[in-house]
């Protein structure tokens, strides 16, 4: 078997075991939270009788182990069940929201990744001179702002001072593609601001690191222009660290943007997850948790693979 295929298979198998472990951890985490689903649903209006009734109808009287394995059995058959709180079909609700999450992540990623790598290259090219300082200064300033502050600032700027965008970004199935783009413009801008610096700095550092090598000097002596040296000779050898940072940021764009979702009332998975954690709605938390973990693990496997493919020494092990 080709070693690369074997490696992929190994990584995927490891990923699946990790997912199983994640599901156990999530389950235990929810069990440890104070209060249960019934109490969380009824809140201030709970009475002893209504609690007992609700626990009965939600099946909370069974032992934790029974509930976990029942859930696992169904999940393995692709049945994520129904939300305890409102009896909505979880797969259906998640399907739509996952789409929205990915839409936002793809829009932000499509702008942020090329932009940050490009800026990183430019910064490396003009290392220590004013373009480098300007790029680093601005991007670091943006990452230093908490997301919600950046979000409120952009709302103020682009909906009230210059009213060209809308503060509430909800998107719905009936909307056209450009309508959706317009709706998510503000959160995309904020997310790009948030992830730009990390990827830019990594690109810059990785390129500068490679620039110390002897072969770069050779390339320069051949008479190539600085940008050509960076593009043709430095970048391919700096790909691995850059990709791993890009992937971490893409994973963040999928799983970590709940604050931005809340500020823009964007109907994606993060807010859905938080609402259900508050109500201790285990099946939903499990399902969303697994999806998030899968995205994270999957993207990391991808980063490993790209790193290996980019490196001839790893690609052709002796």
């Amino acid at each position: 078997m080709h070693p690369l295929i074997k490696l992929v298979a190994q990584r995927i198998a490891l990923g699946l075991i990790l997912l199983l472990a994640v599901s156990v951890v999530i389950f235990l985490g929810i069990e440890m939270l104070p209060g249960d689903t019934a109490q969380a649903i009824l809140g201030q209006s709970a009475t002893a009788t209504s609690l007992a009734n609700l626990r009965e109808s939600l099946g909370l009287n069974q032992s934790p182990a029974t509930r976990y394995f029942t859930w696992l059995g169904h999940a393995l058959q692709g049945d994520l069940g129904k939300a305890l709180t409102n009896q909505q079909d979880i797969a259906q609700a998640i399907g739509q929201r996952l789409g929205n999450t990915l839409f936002l992540a793809v829009c932000a990623g499509a702008i942020a990744v090329p932009l940050s790598i490009g800026l990183g290259l430019v910064a490396a090219r003009f290392n220590g001179r004013w373009p480098d300082k300007l790029i680093s200064g601005v991007t670091l300033a943006m990452i230093s702002l908490p997301e919600f502050v950046a979000a409120y600032f952009m709302i103020l700027l682009l909906t009230l001072v210059i009213p060209i965008l809308q503060p509430v970004s909800m998107i719905f199935p009936g909307m056209g593609f450009f309508e959706k783009l317009h709706a998510v413009a503000l959160p995309v801008i904020v997310l790009v601001m948030v992830v730009l610096a990390h990827m830019m700095r990594m690109t810059r550092a990785a390129i500068l690191n490679v620039m110390q090598s002897a072969y770069i000097e050779t390339a320069e002596l051949k008479g190539l222009s600085p940008m050509q040296v960076i593009w043709r000779h430095a970048l391919p050898n700096a790909v691995a660290p850059i990709i791993s940072v890009v992937v971490i940021n893409l994973a963040y764009l999928v799983v970590g943007v709940v604050v931005v979702e809340v500020v823009f009332s964007y109907n994606a998975l993060g807010q859905y997850l938080v609402d259900h954690v508050a109500k201790r709605d285990l099946p939903v938390v499990q399902a969303v948790g697994i999806i998030f973990a899968a995205v994270y693990i999957g993207l990391n496997i991808l980063a490993d693979l790209i790193g290996i493919i980019a490196n001839p020494r790893l690609r052709h092990p002796k």
Partner: peptide
């Protein structure tokens, strides 16, 4: 009826005429 739980976002939405 839109659910906009965040106070500043809801206020911005009415100022911008979205609600």
């Amino acid at each position: 009826i839109l659910t906009i739980n965040d106070n500043p976002a809801r206020t911005a939405a009415i100022q911008a005429g979205q609600i």
